[in-house]
Design a protein around this nucleic acid. Structure first.
Lengths: 126, 126, 126, 126
DNA sequence: GTGGTCTAGACCACA
DNA sequence: GTGGTCTAGACCACT
């Protein structure tokens, strides 16, 4: 599924959140697919069930998944609300990273071409 | 200079690190400029001096600034090494953020146009 | 009839309880009307019969319906007892919700006008 | 501060959430007031610190409080965003409660007059 | 079987 | 001192 890096600065539950977002965004998990159960993921990643549950709650509150109690957690159809605030944060992140790349001497053209590649890949995997 | 957000999830010292990186990247601080002293910044931001010192240590270890003991901290000429690894991380960040924006329903064209804006702004302020 | 929301935090049986209360309160189900059988509702809502039965038991214990064994469940003539205690709870709920609306910046006039609308709708559908 | 009811159907952390909302809404806790620390409340209510922390996180994600790490939790100036969705939920709650009151035989006029009282009280405590 | 809640007790980073 | 994270293990309601 995805790997945890126990030495990372990111907390475990955040790695799980980002990992699952990645699976959704890349299309490996599709809308209404069922996520592995808390207990299963817990065993698979050798992480405490509470930690998994925390990650799931975080994903739910951000609108990525929904919970049907007694049945499991499922991938949302798409982000429930376009959420301009969240998009703003992402654009801010982009800005910081791009400026840093520019400062490090990366050419504008190279950056743009790599970004276009990313966008194409993203489109293809849908 | 830059704003601190005490409520942010980012720790204060990280915000200072990123803030100073921002000043350098945007050209407000140029190579070999002297940074404000720990004491001054501490007073200006109303933050504990230890926190400032920690931020400076972090910037130094990442190669953004260098310390001349007894004189202060100065902006490095440029990133000491082209550091392909760091660039790779930044591109990876870009990829994650862009894919997330796409998944949230943002149009490819809008993303690219906003990125071009960012790049233009970065170039102009140098 | 009414909609179930599997994703809701409310449990299914509570949604059914509230849904049926709604039908009674709005006048769609009148005193001594027969409720659909557990089996029918179960099929209609694609929900486990035990869940329906649990909802019916809950409604009966609150005095909204009565059971004639072998014949089915029927809507009570009216709430069996004026039940000042229950009314008190409802007023307390109202108070909490209204104060929260006020705190969120909703105007007093808007709140009152919306409440008057609710009351009118309730009266009209009877 | 407020009382917990261990026999209540509401979970402990929800009671804490609602209790603190109540203190804020009634004006006992004002904007930028500091909440008791997790550990203090934990001792005061004889509840596990994790449970308090969960309540605080919930309040934060709903915009009622903000956290300054290392310093404590503080009351937000007012709801950060008017959040139409949340208001809609509250109006729906109002509707359910009012319809039930009507059905129980409470007069329209009495309901409205009691609601106006509530609103007046709410205004006075600000 | 599922997720949700709660306790007890530990360690960490930040200020 | 603060909140944040994590583990271990328990019980509960719902399906």
């Amino acid at each position: 599924m995805f790997q945890l890096d126990l030495r990372s600065k990111k907390s475990i539950y955040e790695q799980i959140v980002d990992g699952i977002k990645g699976l959704i965004v890349s299309g490996e998990l599709k809308a209404n697919d069922r996520l592995p159960s808390v207990r299963d993921l817990s065993a698979q990643l050798t992480v405490n069930p509470n930690t998994i549950a925390k990650a799931f709650r975080s994903l739910e509150s951000q609108g990525w998944i929904y919970t049907v109690s007694g049945r499991g957690c499922f991938v949302s159809e798409s982000m429930q609300s376009p959420d301009a605030e969240q998009a703003g944060k992402l654009y801010a992140e982009l800005e910081v990273a791009i400026r840093e790349l520019l400062f490090m001497g990366n050419g504008e053209d190279e950056i743009i071409s790599r970004i276009k590649e990313i966008i194409k890949k993203g489109g293809a995997s849908k």
